[in-house]
Design a protein around this nucleic acid. Structure first.
Lengths: 333, 333
DNA sequence: CTGTTAGCGCCTTCAC
DNA sequence: GTGAAGGCGCTAACAG
């Protein structure tokens, strides 16, 4: 009933060599004669031997697995990053332990600790907010960590992102150029730095450079769900708002559908710009205009960066900023 | 530079007990005097000691991690299952190693092997097709495996599903009751058992019981992408088809949008039923009528079942069939 | 090029 | 209740 009855020792005996030699061929060590190597390989095949990664991990202090903390796999934005992460991880022979955190600081800290206990070689963290406590844990962990599509105002950890300030500023500018004066900023929780310190800042910059006064009255804070977006429509209509910059695609989808359901024609009567360009944006009608982020690449680059750090390679840039585009589809004029 | 400098040995020395005792309190063994237990706990806290799960795994032959093989995290159907899986896993103190397979038999077999090498305590497999080779690997693995939202015609492995035959039959029946005679079956790859042996069968049963002849001409095999659905519209229109049962939500979304973009009014001129009730279904306009599967629960129940098997508990039913509903929204009359 | 010998950090009998 | 000792399966010097 053992999962793993045949060990390196069995292989060694069967092949008439020492376990060290078997270990060498397993690890691609070149110091093995071709003929013995072949013989060992042969025996491994015959015995259907599969190295025990746990034992290997204990001995070598490397588990070839990395932890991935994600708010919610079900979210199209983060799952796209996760896909990029996993593909690159696989490419470099790593596996990922995926853990959902719901953006909950308690869960994040807790899962971080269990990951460290499992001796992951590195961690990719995705989350909308990094508080002091978490930053401390990161520091104390003594484990390579990279943020993917997530922002740390202190830049205390390597990260891969786009320029959120710039992107939102550009969106807002376009909306202004389209003639809108009352533009809503529809956001996820403002305690999240990515919303408050980056996106909102971009929004304000655009208003400012166009001499439009900023008003708290046009800032709508939500929990980023489809329903939140849907429920917001009436209020926006009542305030005679004619356009919105939205920080999340599902949120934008809710707003869009609510508008349409109320007979408000998008984009003629109301324009919407969203932020993440998940699959969803193109599947809606009208299609959502959006910042087009290289989602897969953000994950992929983050994982690649992590491999370099784990590997102690020299890093050119610990704070990668990838390019983005703005694609105007059908939800803007 | 060690990730884990303080070991159980340090704790033992510091607390003036043996490592065996420390191990006991760590594992909740009752044979420890209350006072010593408290002392040990105190030292653990002081030293910021964190047990090394790898060493523990080697010694105990339990890793408290399970492998999860998924076609693509980016797919709303599977990511919902994955969320259910992770939540229950967390509840039972397991972590999940998530691996994308793209439904590719080669990748599936390969990742299965690396998971087994990592000594996972169990595996949840999601995939649209299980071929003989994979079934063999499952059997040989001698590792608890549960299928989630995935079907094995041979029932060689415990699984959690809904009754796909019945569900598709019901959908088709409704379409027939709505007066449709030419109903398309728009499917993912027909080499996948879930499509060919279950859904298609349900479609045929409905036709049959309504004395409508089955025609291969109305079966459309695709790769299940949004684009596939979009590109199919013209053909369906040309054939004067008035309704479709679709096996995948993104596929259905593509078809829906293509119809709308071509001026075909859904549901007046064309009805659509989809199969998975992912978030997407309700976000589209018109909203997609669908089989409403308990996605999260399928994952959750599968993981719960797996814990029972890993725990050698008695299992009432190794082939769980969860209930489903059919929800008619706006894409059907 | 190959074998020997220690551990890696923890669990788990088995004594006391 | 607690300690001592022997692995778990593999890697990593160190010899030869």
């Amino acid at each position: 009933m053992d999962k793993q009855n045949v060990t390196i020792y069995d292989v060694a005996r069967e092949a008439g060599v020492s376990m060290a030699t078997v270990s060498r061929v397993l690890n691609g060590n070149s110091n093995v004669r071709q003929t013995t190597k072949e013989k060992v390989l042969q025996v491994i095949d015959n015995l259907d031997y599969r190295p025990n990664a746990v034992a290997r991990g204990l001995a070598s202090k490397k588990t070839t697995t990395v932890g991935v903390i994600i708010p919610d796999v079900t979210d199209g934005y983060f799952s796209s990053l996760a896909r990029g992460i996993d593909d690159i991880a696989t490419m470099y022979n790593y596996n990922i332990i995926l853990a959902n955190s719901d953006d909950n600081p308690g869960k994040e800290a807790s899962v971080l600790n269990t990951l460290l206990g499992k001796q992951v070689d590195g961690i990719i963290f995705m989350g909308n907010e990094i508080d002091d406590h978490l930053r401390d844990e990161f520091k104390r962990s003594d484990c390579p960590i990279v943020l993917a599509g997530s922002v740390d105002v202190n830049n205390s950890v390597p990260s891969v992102n786009i320029d959120y300030v710039d992107a939102v500023m550009n969106e807002t500018n376009r909306l202004i150029q389209h003639g809108n004066q009352k533009i809503a900023f529809v956001s996820g929780p403002l305690k999240q730095a990515i919303n408050k310190d980056y996106r909102l800042k971009g929004y304000k910059k655009a208003l400012n450079s166009n001499h439009i006064p900023f008003s708290d009255d046009l800032v709508f804070e939500t929990t980023s769900t489809y329903e939140d977006g849907y429920n917001l429509a009436d209020e926006l209509i009542k305030k005679n708002i004619t356009a919105a910059v939205v920080t999340n695609d599902e949120l934008a989808a809710g707003l869009l559908n609510a508008m349409t359901d109320r007979g408000v024609v998008v984009p003629d009567d109301f324009e919407i710009f969203t932020s993440n360009n998940t699959k969803l944006a193109k599947m809606l009608r009208p299609q959502l205009s959006s910042i087009t982020q290289p989602l897969y690449d953000i994950g992929a680059v983050a994982m690649r960066l992590l491999t370099k750090i784990m590997n102690q390679e020299k890093i050119d840039d610990k704070y990668v900023v990838l390019g983005y585009e703005i694609e105007e589809r059908q939800s803007t004029k």
